[in-house]
Simulated scan of single mutants.
Amino acid sequence: METGELPLDINIHDPRWDQNTFMGRAKHFFTITNPLNLLLSDQELHKAQTIVKNYKAGIVTPGLTEDELWRAKYRYDSAFHPDTDQKIYLIGRMSAQAPMNMIICGFMLTFHRNFASVVFWQWVNQSFNAIVNYSNRNGNVTVTEKQLGVAYMSATTGAVVTAVGFRALTKHLPSLVACFMPLTAVCAANCINVPLMREREIRMGIPVTDDSGHKLGYSSKAAQKGIFQVVISRIVMAFPSLTIPPLLMTELEKKDFLKRRPWLSCPVQMGMVGFLQLFATPLCCAIFPQRSSILVKYLEPELRAQIKEHSPNTEVVYFNKGL
């Protein structure tokens, strides 16, 4: 066995930083969501995949350092699904969140007064969300085309109806109030899209394991908790980029600089959204641990009995909550 210069006891099955702390999770997600990961070529990604898989198999690339191993690990994690090991669509990767939301939210905020634009950009946003939700689902549970279609149409309809309804309600109110229409629509859509996209997980359950990673069964209670955490993270993630730019733009548009150059409003607002998303995405993904947990006593009675029989000392089980 080739061991090279690097020891084989580095735990790359888990993130580099302690995931029991918010700061550890934040460092992890700042690395995962770094938009520069999108510039990696297929060759670079497959090289990273080979390094990681070889190391897990006990084979170390000659001359590989620990920092290079972790760099390969995070390149690999940024592009491949943790459960299925399949390469994720480019815009479905978490590293695409900041640039894609910069464009979509920027246009939603800029053109929130036009009915056709409201409908179009809510549709674009939910199409993007559907790809992200599908790409980052729990890979141990399959999703049918019918479920994808229902989730997509329901979230899109919910977002558009919310946005149009809010637009009608705020028609005679100050323009600043109307600026928050995109936020209301996005929050409503997240409450619809994520649960529907992952409805099969609620119905069939997701794998739960003990502390050592041994599968103990499937739980819909764990799925419900994971989906709830994802919805909360998504809603909080939307707040900075859909509230701060409108407030700032209300003041900036009063200045002569933008009055003389109104065409700059969209790129300025888009830049604000992009900057905020660089921080909001990783920090909000870090609110809850990726490897979430639930007490055995809160599981389904049948699963509780099964765990008590085969693993009587287990009081907490773990699961992948998705993103």
Rank of each mutant, 00 (worst) to 15 (best):
residue 260 R to K: 13
residue 158 G to A: 05
residue 297 K to S: 12
residue 114 N to Y: 12
residue 46 H to A: 04
residue 154 S to C: 14
residue 243 T to C: 09
residue 263 W to Y: 12
residue 192 I to C: 02
residue 277 Q to H: 09
residue 237 M to H: 04
residue 318 Y to R: 01
residue 311 S to R: 07
residue 147 Q to W: 01
residue 171 K to T: 15
residue 123 W to R: 11
residue 284 C to N: 05
residue 95 S to R: 03
residue 114 N to H: 15
residue 67 D to G: 14
residue 96 A to C: 04
residue 147 Q to K: 03
residue 261 R to H: 12
residue 150 V to G: 06
residue 40 L to K: 08
residue 74 Y to A: 00
residue 166 F to W: 13
residue 116 A to Q: 13
residue 138 N to H: 01
residue 7 P to W: 13
residue 61 T to G: 07
residue 277 Q to K: 06
residue 276 L to A: 03
residue 99 P to T: 02
residue 136 N to R: 08
residue 265 S to P: 04
residue 34 N to R: 02
residue 157 T to S: 11
residue 2 E to T: 13
residue 63 G to T: 11
residue 82 P to D: 11
residue 278 L to T: 00
residue 150 V to Y: 11
residue 113 R to C: 11
residue 170 T to H: 07
residue 251 E to P: 11
residue 54 N to V: 11
residue 124 V to H: 01
residue 276 L to I: 01
residue 178 A to K: 13
residue 300 E to P: 00
residue 124 V to Y: 04
residue 296 V to L: 01
residue 189 A to H: 07
residue 175 S to K: 12
residue 114 N to T: 10
residue 162 T to E: 11
residue 253 E to T: 09
residue 194 V to I: 12
residue 303 L to Q: 00
residue 164 V to H: 09
residue 93 R to Q: 10
residue 276 L to V: 00
residue 219 S to A: 05
residue 189 A to W: 09
residue 133 N to Y: 06
residue 250 T to Y: 15
residue 185 A to D: 04
residue 184 T to H: 13
residue 285 C to N: 05
residue 308 K to M: 15
residue 261 R to A: 10
residue 322 G to S: 05
residue 27 K to A: 04
residue 135 S to Y: 04
residue 178 A to L: 12
residue 258 L to S: 08
residue 307 I to S: 03
residue 134 Y to M: 08
residue 304 R to P: 08
residue 206 I to Q: 06
residue 207 P to D: 01
residue 185 A to H: 06
residue 197 M to A: 01
residue 3 T to Y: 03
residue 45 L to I: 14
residue 192 I to S: 00
residue 9 D to F: 07
residue 184 T to A: 14
residue 238 A to C: 12
residue 250 T to I: 14
residue 34 N to F: 02
residue 309 E to M: 12
residue 89 Y to K: 15
residue 189 A to R: 00
residue 317 V to I: 06
